[in-house]
């Protein structure tokens, strides 16, 4: 049995004549440790799919099972618990809380846990060090670069060591250098066994994934290897990474 399973996930907004289908009966499975990229043009349903996988939205129909848990059969509080225990989120616009320092932002997922402050601080410091931000714990988000903010967001997603990472256009607001660093970080996490689902516009960034899901008009139109990795030529992959980065 697969680790993550979407069965006929469908999401529509509005009703009657104004009914708009954002996602139509999408089904796929993801194994533990897979790095899956989701691609498609704007309005293809990528973000809707990610919000459903993140238990942030409720599907109009369909089933979503993670590690044997039927997520949309759970109540609101249990879904919140699922997000805390299973998921790490990386958003396109970082979504750091502006009045909290980098370390405090990273500690946010731990705020509801019964754990001493020292333990939480140690975990945050460890996560920040992992993304190369050791020594910048006390800075506010507006005191660091966009790349550092994104890496802080990744550290926040990692701090409670969730098995799944959901990333929405993680390099969308970054320059080449910072994009490369973030993608290398995600690739490294994938290599460490973390299950990653990343939404991206960029075919080049998708080249870091082990699998590519393609969406168009809310339908799943492709499921296979990322295009640049099909070639399986190290030189070509390096070129792809350079372009993404």
């Amino acid at each position: 049995m697969s680790y993550l399973s979407a069965e006929n996930l469908e999401k529509s907004y509005g009703q009657g004549q104004s009914l708009a289908q954002a996602l139509g009966k999408v089904s796929f499975e993801v194994e533990k440790g897979e790095f899956v990229a989701v691609m498609g043009p704007s309005g293809s349903g990528k973000s809707t799919l990610l919000s459903l996988l993140g238990a942030l939205n409720t599907p109009s129909s369909g089933r979503y099972v993670v590690d044997g848990l039927d997520i949309y059969a759970l109540g609101q509080d249990q879904r919140a618990d699922f997000r805390r225990e299973y998921l790490g989120f990386v958003f396109q616009s970082f979504n750091l809380v502006p009045y909290l320092s980098l370390a405090e932002n990273v500690m946010l997922p731990l705020a509801t846990l019964r754990m001493g402050k020292a333990g939480k601080r140690a975990l945050a410091a460890e996560a920040l060090a992992r993304v190369g931000l050791a020594g910048k714990e006390g800075r506010l988000p507006n005191q660091v670069s966009g790349g550092e903010q994104e890496r802080t967001a990744v550290a926040r997603a990692l701090v409670n060591r969730p098995p799944i990472l959901l990333a929405d256009e993680p390099t969308g607001n970054l320059d080449q250098q910072n994009s490369r660093e973030v993608m290398e970080l995600l690739a490294r996490l994938g290599g460490e066994g973390m299950t990653i689902v990343m939404v991206t516009h960029s075919r080049d960034c998708a080249g870091h994934a082990s699998r590519l899901l393609s969406l168009r008009d809310g339908k799943l139109v492709g499921d296979g290897l990322p295009p640049l990795r099909v070639v399986e030529q190290p030189a070509a992959a390096q070129t792809a990474q350079a372009v993404c980065g």
């Binding site: 993140g54 942030l56 609101q76 509080d77 919140a80 618990d81 997000r83 805390r84 225990e85 998921l87 989120f89 958003f91 979504n95 809380v97 946010l108 997922p109 705020a111 509801t112 926040r156």
Partner: peptide, 16 residues
């Protein structure tokens, strides 16, 4: 609103 969305996304319950 956005900040509260982040709280909810990272696992805060409504009561939190």
């Amino acid at each position: 609103t956005g900040e509260i969305g982040v709280f909810r996304a990272i696992g805060f319950r409504r009561a939190h």
